[in-house]
């Protein structure tokens, strides 16, 4: 009799635990769905859909060893074709260098050797703390899954603090921590972690601009969390969504424009 009571109690307890867990995961899934929606919105707004985008970028890199360096770059983007072209205009010694992405290929052009070399979105941009992928559209919802989120404050903004883990090993950083505003779903800060979960880089997006239907950071700050004192600031100006001629996204253009 006593054994039967114990058995029943164990079964009831087990059922409660399973039910409780199920309810909790259902609630978690619901919450994550809300954050997922926000991330999809962030991704969608960072692309230019059917339109083109052009801007002038001023990249200021601070390095305790090398000092402060400024690079001015003209950027052209056509997200629907996975294309972008970037032409370096300053400093003078690097004028003529450029990047061209077409689909999965990314080339770097050096006018001194008149040669294109393959590079990758994961590579750093011109020895700065920015990566080539920082100049393309975001895809958080596609590449990452949400592992945890909390609500918090960043300055005067109420934010969701979201922890993401990569869904595959194609992305540069396996773990991310995002600060997204609750009011208008803007990413204000991103911490990027290594596979060993060590903070490697912090990206800050203090201001945004609406360009056509898209919203993109007007200013980006990247702080290297491993090398002390290394940071890069990127400011966007002369932003435009006017159609860009097809020939801009060709190797011939990069060769020709630099002559």
């Amino acid at each position: 009799m006593r054994n039967t009571i114990c058995l029943r109690a164990a079964v009831v307890l087990g059922m409660l635990l399973v039910l409780g867990g199920g309810l909790q995961s259902a609630a978690g899934a619901e919450d994550f769905a809300h954050i997922e929606t926000i991330l999809r919105e962030v991704d969608t707004r960072s692309t230019f859909g059917d339109g083109d985008f052009a801007a002038l970028l001023t990249v200021i890199t601070e390095d305790p060893e090398k000092g402060v360096e400024q690079t001015v770059v003209r950027q052209f983007r056509r997200d629907r074709e996975d294309q972008f072209a970037m032409l370096i205009q300053e400093p003078r010694v690097q004028r003529g260098q450029g990047y061209l992405m077409d689909g999965e290929n990314l080339w770097f052009y050096d006018p001194s050797s008149r040669q294109f070399s393959h590079t990758s979105l994961k590579e750093t941009f011109q020895d700065s703390d920015a990566r080539n992928s920082d100049f393309t559209a975001w895809s958080y919802a596609e590449d990452y899954e949400i592992t945890e989120y909390t609500e918090g404050q960043l300055g005067v903004n109420s934010v969701y603090i979201v922890l993401l883990a990569a869904l595959h090993d194609e992305v540069t950083y396996p773990y991310l921590k995002l600060w997204v505003t609750q009011e208008n779903a803007l990413i204000l800060k991103v911490e990027e972690y290594s596979l060993t979960q060590r903070l490697m880089r912090t990206a800050l997006f203090p201001s945004y601009a609406r360009v056509g239907d898209s919203v993109i950071p007007r200013q980006m700050v990247f702080v290297d969390e491993l090398a002390e004192g290394q940071r890069t600031q990127i400011a966007f100006s002369e932003m435009s969504v006017q159609p860009i001629p097809d020939y801009v996204f060709t190797r011939a253009y990069l060769e020709q424009v630099n002559r």
């Binding site: 990758s120 990569a166 090993d169 540069t172 950083y173 060993t196």
Partner: peptide, 16 residues
């Protein structure tokens, strides 16, 4: 020292 490197599939990693 820290060593910044890529995993075999190209993900960023750091060793101490």
């Amino acid at each position: 020292v820290l060593i910044r490197l890529d995993t075999v599939t190209g993900q960023r990693n750091v060793g101490e």
